[in-house]
Design a protein around this nucleic acid. Sequence first.
DNA 1: CTTGACTCTTTAGCCGCTACAGGGTTTTCA
DNA 2: TGAAAACCCTGTAGCGGCTAAAGAGTCAAG
Lengths: 163, 163
Amino acid sequence: MLPRPQGVNQISVMKIGELARQTGTQVETIRYYEREGLLSEAARTDGNYRIYSEAHVERLLFIRNCRSLDMTLDEIRLLLRFKDSPAENCGAVNELLDEHIGHVAARIRQLRQLERELKELREFCRETSIAGSCGILNKLSRQSPRKESTESSVGVHVRRTHS
Amino acid sequence: MLPRPQGVNQISVMKIGELARQTGTQVETIRYYEREGLLSEAARTDGNYRIYSEAHVERLLFIRNCRSLDMTLDEIRLLLRFKDSPAENCGAVNELLDEHIGHVAARIRQLRQLERELKELREFCRETSIAGSCGILNKLSRQSPRKESTESSVGVHVRRTHS
DNA sequence: CTTGACTCTTTAGCCGCTACAGGGTTTTCA
DNA sequence: TGAAAACCCTGTAGCGGCTAAAGAGTCAAG
């Protein structure tokens, strides 16, 4: 029923695995986006397999692009709404992007400060010794926790360090 | 039975709310740390209330210090183990800190790159127009998603932009 | 006809909390 | 003294953005 998937392009109807391959997305992530309403519900084959076209590739690439720019799914949802109504004014798109840039910049400032503090802390134990007299452990015990910068308490919407 | 909490210090036995106040921690967070084994199980009053001493204040401040330096609970667990066995060599403490500094530095580099890309993207729609011809939306549709830097795919353990 | 690759749905887990709901205990104040 | 308020308890669910796994169905090749 469906043309069988080839290694390369020219296919315009495909199953989820091929969509995943063409966009560098995991299959589960695609289904997740569908549940979240970023992708509309796909048509199905007789065997209940989702089927996609080039249009889905484009839309998913859009989403993945936005994600690789660290936008939230909510932000992406908004952008998609504009993409879907091309007659509207795109001022809000610019606004969203400017805000997002602001968040990234704020997070960079936070992390720079954090880096300074960590390096300062590291200086407290230049030489390896026993834990009981380790300058780092002692410093960590005594300092009072610095409060998060005003920026972040104000809701910078920028995540922390670890992944 | 317990001396009643005063606005200021000198109290050495307290309930969870006072510990929370003295350390700037939420009550639920303290109970969470206990569940996670960062704080040992607290003694209880007749009425089943947790009771804490100065030692707990110190330990919790240590934890909150580490958290404000964006360490994971796993990292903190390791540091606490060293704190609890003062005879051991603290080389691993230095190592952990160096690694953590590396992660923060890597995340800063990633975010700088991200900032550059976002600003570049922003240039595609200098003037507000209609969404159908918005340079930003068009660019996002066409570009193929840049892969995350090798650093992050290698497991930099550094979170993304939003919070 | 079997094997194996693919797909389906549902559910749970990751991290570090945070926020309930629905109770019990203690303190305060009239 | 008694009622209300403030505090505490346990247990469970939710946040975001996936990821993984269980258990079953579908389909194409040899």
